[in-house]
């Protein structure tokens, strides 16, 4: 029976690990309206893949390095006021992506399976990938917990936070780094094109059932885990691509969360 195969359980573990991180982090992406940021940063992964192959290291590290570099560059360039942030981000991210693809084209004799990067190849994850997912994921989650209140405050009103002495730039930078790390570990599961969906769909689906930010973060993690498990089960049963199957499952969960009949299920403490 295929369900007993080690690679299936390994894939499930990897997917669950990613969902546990993308859920809570994705809440901030939704609250801060940074979906485009996540998407763009994910696209720079191509530069990271090229970098990884050039240096002979796992593309995961290359992707993390490229995403961090773009995030840092973005913060530095935001000091000028002529170009809007999303324009700047688009230039950096797509420039990086194109540069990565051109670099890959220059490498002779290396065949890169771009499709597996675009849509993920979760059933091919190795144990070392699982360790990285849980290791880097724990660091990102821990940082998120430590910065939770500060990040919420900066999300509510950055000027007010700054006036009260919060290191707003450092907090924003830390958040971008968390996203960069998450993109690097999520790439193998759902692929570059669908990473943003793992950030925003579980969070959006969780909104309806949450009366506090913490509950929304936990609900998003739970919904993400359900999406991963059911999506992978579907993928194995019907032999569909795993990454897109997970995202289809997440989208279905989001649709269910919007059903009017569920309005009574809100987890509330209102008097």
């Amino acid at each position: 029976m295929i369900w007993e195969a080690e690679f299936v359980w390994r894939a499930m573990m990897a997917g669950v690990g990613v969902a546990l991180v993308t859920g809570p982090l994705g809440c901030f992406v939704v609250w801060r309206r940074m979906a485009y940021f996540g998407n763009s940063l994910a696209h720079t992964a191509f530069l990271g893949i090229a970098l990884g192959i050039l240096l002979g290291i796992d593309p995961m590290f290359g992707i993390a390095a490229a995403a961090i570099a773009v995030a840092l560059l973005l913060v530095m360039m935001q000091r000028q006021t002529q170009l809007a942030d999303d324009t700047l981000l688009g230039i950096l991210a797509h420039g990086g992506m194109a540069l990565g693809l051109v670099t890959l084209g220059f490498m002779e004799g290396i065949r890169v399976d771009l499709l597996s990067y675009l849509f993920g190849d979760v059933l091919a994850v190795r144990w070392s990938d699982v360790w990285w997912i849980y290791g880097a994921g724990s660091v990102a989650l821990l940082a998120l917990i430590l910065l939770w209140r500060s990040l919420l405050m900066v999300t509510v009103h950055p000027e007010l936070a700054a006036a009260e002495g919060a290191p707003v730039l450092a907090i924003r930078l830390a958040f971008m780094l968390m996203i960069a790390v998450t993109i690097a570990i999520a790439m193998k599961i759902v692929g570059i094109l669908l990473i943003t969906s793992m950030l925003i769909i579980p969070a959006a689906a969780a909104r309806r059932f949450s009366s506090t930010p913490e509950r929304m973060a936990m609900a998003a993690a739970a919904i993400g885990v359900v999406a991963v498990v059911s999506g992978m089960a579907g993928s194995i049963t019907w032999d569909t691509p795993a990454g897109p199957s997970i995202v289809v499952a997440a989208t279905a969960l989001f649709a269910i969360s919007r059903l009017p009949a569920l309005s009574g299920f809100a987890i509330r403490r209102e008097t």
């Binding site: 939704v30 609250w31 209140r149 500060s150 919420l152 405050m153 999300t155 509510v156 936070a161 009260e164 919060a166 969070a203 959006a204 909104r207 949450s210 009366s211 506090t212 930010p213 509950r215 929304m216």
Partner: peptide
């Protein structure tokens, strides 16, 4: 999309 009650807002950032 941010579920924030008044008491939670008062508890930010401390």
């Amino acid at each position: 999309t941010l579920p924030l009650t008044v008491s939670r807002l008062l508890s930010l950032p401390r």
